[in-house]
Design a protein around this nucleic acid. Structure first.
Length: 506
RNA sequence: CGGGGCGUAGCUCAGCCUGGUAGAGCGCUCGCUUUGGGAGCGAGAAGUCGCAGGUUCGAAUCCUGUCGCCCCGACCA
């Protein structure tokens, strides 16, 4: 019982132990920089040490997603894909390449993406007649196909999603948050009316919000993007925005109402109920591997990753305590427990590696964010119990073997809920409302700036000025916000038309 | 793309200033003892010094270029 020393001394991941002096509270974590010391390095340390991703020698800005990181992505795929299917969408796959002539068709779109498009100029040794863009997003190629398929209003709506990789030639990259190549899903739909396209756009944003909050336990702000921040070629863009541990915002998903812009550029037309040929209304929407970056930063602490049970590749890690011929005496019990948990639908890792001590395994799986650790040793077997330990609160408990599965499931549900509640509380603490630009500047100059709501005159010039002066950008115009009526813009003093949410962003 | 920093064993780094042919700790392999919060002892393997040129009798070390990573800006769904 002497292993109670580490206690539960940490709350929001404030600077905890540094792990160099070998005292008591700092028995683990020597490999990860503390958040307080350097948040960026903390983030990179977690990504690398938890083996989520790794750099690829000689290849700039691209990461290899390692099995443990990819397993998280697979959970995201599984859980989101089910929701997209449930709302009537089907999956398909479109080509990676986009002929230059096609890409040029939508002017605003081209201009928006031109700086980050990668080009293929040769096939083997021969120079291509026409350059091929590697898709930075697939509106163009998918729109081209839709134009081919669509004839009648009876063909509508078209509701297709694809899981794919895209490439954007970014100048500054960070694993998961911004990489040259990344994985995502992109939905592309076609509708008969403007209203239906708008409904779809908003519906998907709702799906994203519910998915991210329920499964990733990440509270998000849903709202509409300002014109300056909207997708190149869209009529309207909506987003969900999450607040990270360092007080900066992360765009976690976007949904675009493309109006008829792409329909006109790519000839997506149909004969309507009124027998008149007309352009369709399209939407597109996506979330990416960036969500993994968000997960790390919303829940992680100085010991590493903290994963919500719904998304964790392993929800429980079983660490058998070796004593004597433990493979004969302890391991069978561990295996039996694993079988029970697996039968109940719990994702379990039984760490029976000989080469590592229990203490080493504890620290290792903590760093990887496994929600619940289950220890079982000779003493426990005698008493018909196990030791359970929570990753998020570090709480430990002796739990009877009898009713163990239900107990574990209870813990998992509780961890999922409390991670969300805690993230929500942190966000509330760091969300402010102001009508004063001076106060706004002061807030943005803080170490963990957070979100600031303010009445706004909706002028792109002023938006640019605020960005220059404070580095803050408009994340979105939240659906849920104080009313703007009767208020004046906090920068210009002109009548406010909307309340905007500002933040420094990733 | 601009400013700054860094590339030496799997990892963290020393060596570079003042050229003489590469080291430590951790990790890894083998053996024994261990194992309830990152185990101990013994033996061992491991590096084209990011890459390419140049100077030199001789380059990890000096010079030039280049690639990659990190930080700060600019740019960016």
């Amino acid at each position: 019982m002497s292993e109670q020393q580490q206690g539960k001394g940490q709350q929001q991941g404030k600077g905890q132990q540094q792990g160099k002096s070998g005292g008591k509270g700092d028995a683990f974590v020597t490999a990860i920089t503390s958040q307080a010391e350097d948040y960026s390095r903390w983030y990179l340390d977690v990504v690398l040490r938890a083996e989520l991703a790794d750099y690829t020698p000689g290849l700039k800005g691209c990461m290899t997603i390692r099995p443990y990181g990819y397993a998280i992505w697979e959970r995201i795929q599984l859980l989101l894909d089910a929701r997209l299917k449930a709302t009537g969408h089907v999956n398909a796959y479109f080509p990676l390449f986009i002929p230059e002539s096609l890409l040029m068709k939508e002017a605003e779109h081209v201009e928006g993406f031109a700086p980050e498009v990668a080009w293929v100029t040769h096939g083997g040794k021969e120079k291509l007649e026409e350059r091929l863009a590697i898709r930075p997003t697939s509106e163009v190629i998918i729109g081209t196909m839709y134009a081919k398929w669509l004839q009648s209003w009876r063909d509508l709506p078209i509701l297709i999603n694809q899981w794919a990789n895209v490439v954007r030639w970014e100048k500054v990259t960070r694993p998961f948050l911004r990489t040259t190549e990344f994985l995502w899903q992109e939905g592309h739909t076609v509708h008969e009316t403007e209203a239906e396209a708008e409904e779809e756009t908003r519906k998907i944003l709702g799906v994203y919000k519910e998915f991210v909050e329920t499964e990733l336990a990440m509270p998000v702000i849903d709202g509409q993007k300002s014109d300056a921040e909207k997708f190149a070629g869209a009529a309207k863009t909506y987003s969900i925005e999450a607040l990270m541990g360092d007080g900066r915002a992360l765009q976690a998903g976007t949904s675009h109402n493309l109006g008829q812009n792409f329909a006109k550029a790519f000839d997506i037309k149909f004969q309507g109920r009124d027998k008149v040929e007309q352009h369709a209304w399209t939407t597109s929407w996506g979330v990416s591997t960036r969500l993994i970056g968000g997960l790390i930063m919303v829940h992680g602490d100085d010991s590493g990753l903290v994963l919500p049970p719904n998304i964790a590749p392993y929800q429980v890690v079983i660490v058998p305590i070796p004593r004597g011929d433990w493979r004969e005496t302890v391991l069978p019990h561990a295996q039996a427990i694993k079988a029970q948990l697996v039968a109940a639908g719990v994702r379990v890792m039984l760490d029976d590696r000989d080469a590592y001590t229990p203490g080493w395994k504890f620290a290792d799986w903590e760093m990887r964010g496994v929600p619940v650790r289950l220890e079982i040793g000779p003493k426990d077997i005698e008493k018909q119990q196990v030791v359970l330990a929570r990753r998020d609160t570090r709480e430990k408990a002796f739990v009877a073997m009898d009713g163990l599965v239900a107990h574990v499931q209870g813990w998992l549900a509780d961890i999922q809920a409390s991670l969300f509640a805690k993230a929500q509380q942190v966000r509330e603490e760091r969300t402010h409302y102001t009508e004063s630009y001076e106060e706004f500047k002061a807030l943005m100059a803080g170490t963990r700036p957070g979100l600031v709501y303010a009445p706004w005159c909706d002028d792109a010039t002023v938006e640019a000025q605020v960005k220059t002066e404070t580095q803050a950008t408009i994340r979105n115009y939240p659906f849920v916000a104080p009313p703007a009526e009767g208020k004046v813009c906090f920068v210009t003093g002109r009548p406010a038309t909307v309340v905007a949410c500002f933040a420094k962003a990733y």
